[in-house]
């Protein structure tokens, strides 16, 4: 029982990391139908910028909380600028190109960002400053820390904030209109370029927050940290129904739970044949299974085929 509770906590925390990253994917996809494969790299840049800025400021004598706050702010701004430039330079010229084109561009950008980060920050794993208090709690034999609580709350807050933005503001209305039919939206006076750029900038700000949270949680950062995380988060977004904010959240948490419980119990259930060495493929197998039966994901609406 104690173990089950702990595994549920593990899954929930891991899941909210996925959800946080998945929100960025889903926002961009919902509006332009583009998978921004480089999103995971933006998460990584966010973490590394925060690490460098915080490190430099604490070295200059600032207290950790202030240095950390400034580090997060700089990371968010850097990522917003990065998101804007990505859209402007790489994706906007391709908006009317065939479907595969922007996808391959995105893969290319992901490689470029990863290698640039490697040149700037080196190949070694770096220590990420412990930004949050080190408090630990224990309930019913299950342990959790303050960082984990902050992480779950941040994800939930981000989702609610994003939902508010999309469903309650003028920008949100313009976004939804663009998502429905960008040409008509354009005729109705929506500035499509600005709406798409806004989606990228907001998505990248979310990525920066995610990067800082991940860094602070594991206290380690590395130029390749975004890649696998991006893949998993993307899987989560597809699982929940890409383009759907609630779906991204649900998909993320579901994926986290599948991984934790899968690693925790499948080994015992199959007599050790399928143990934790298959942890990474549970996610993909569930994804394929879901897509076979519900090609639009668990919560996705059956929109017309977006091929």
């Amino acid at each position: 029982m104690e173990t089950l509770l702990q595994q549920l906590i593990n899954g929930l925390v891991q899941g909210s990391i996925y959800a946080l990253v998945a929100l960025g994917y889903t926002l961009v996809y919902g509006i332009m139908g583009l998978i921004n494969f480089a999103h995971g790299e933006v998460v990584m840049i966010g973490a590394l910028v925060a690490l460098s800025v915080t490190g430099a400021l604490t070295a200059a004598g600032l207290p950790l909380w202030l240095a950390g706050a400034l580090g997060i702010a700089v990371a968010i701004l850097t990522c917003m600028a990065l998101g804007w430039s990505l859209e402007r330079i790489a994706y906007r010229p391709l908006r009317h190109a065939p479907r595969l084109t922007p996808l391959i561009t995105a893969i290319g950008m992901s490689i470029v960002l990863q290698n640039l980060a490697m040149m700037l920050w080196g190949r070694n794993y770096m220590q990420f400053p412990a930004l949050f208090p080190k408090a630990a709690f224990s309930v019913g034999g299950a342990h959790f820390t303050a960082v984990q609580i902050i992480m779950v709350l941040t994800s939930a807050a981000m989702m609610i904030g994003l939902a508010f933005l999309v469903y309650r503001t003028r920008l949100g209305m313009a976004m939804r209109a663009t998502a429905q039919n960008s040409q008509v939206a354009g005729l109705m006076g929506v500035n499509i370029d600005r709406v798409v750029a806004a989606a990228f900038v907001i998505g990248s700000a979310l990525a920066a927050v995610a990067g800082v949270m991940v860094g602070a949680y594991y206290e380690i950062a590395h130029y390749q940290m975004g890649f696998m995380l991006g893949l998993k988060a993307f899987t989560a977004a597809v699982l929940g129904g890409i383009g759907n904010l609630g779906g991204a959240m649900a998909g993320g948490i579901l994926l986290g739970l599948i991984e934790a419980l899968g690693a925790g119990y499948i080994g015992d259930l199959t007599g050790g044949f399928l143990g934790s060495h298959y942890q990474d493929i549970f996610a993909f197998i569930v994804l394929i299974a879901v897509l076979v039966f519900r090609p639009a994901g668990l919560f996705g609406e059956k929109t017309g085929e977006r091929a």
Partner: peptide, 17 residues
Amino acid sequence: TEYTTDKATDFKAILTN
């Protein structure tokens, strides 16, 4: 006996086991 990969960062599930 538990397993992970040479790219993983989260080990909580296997450590809980």
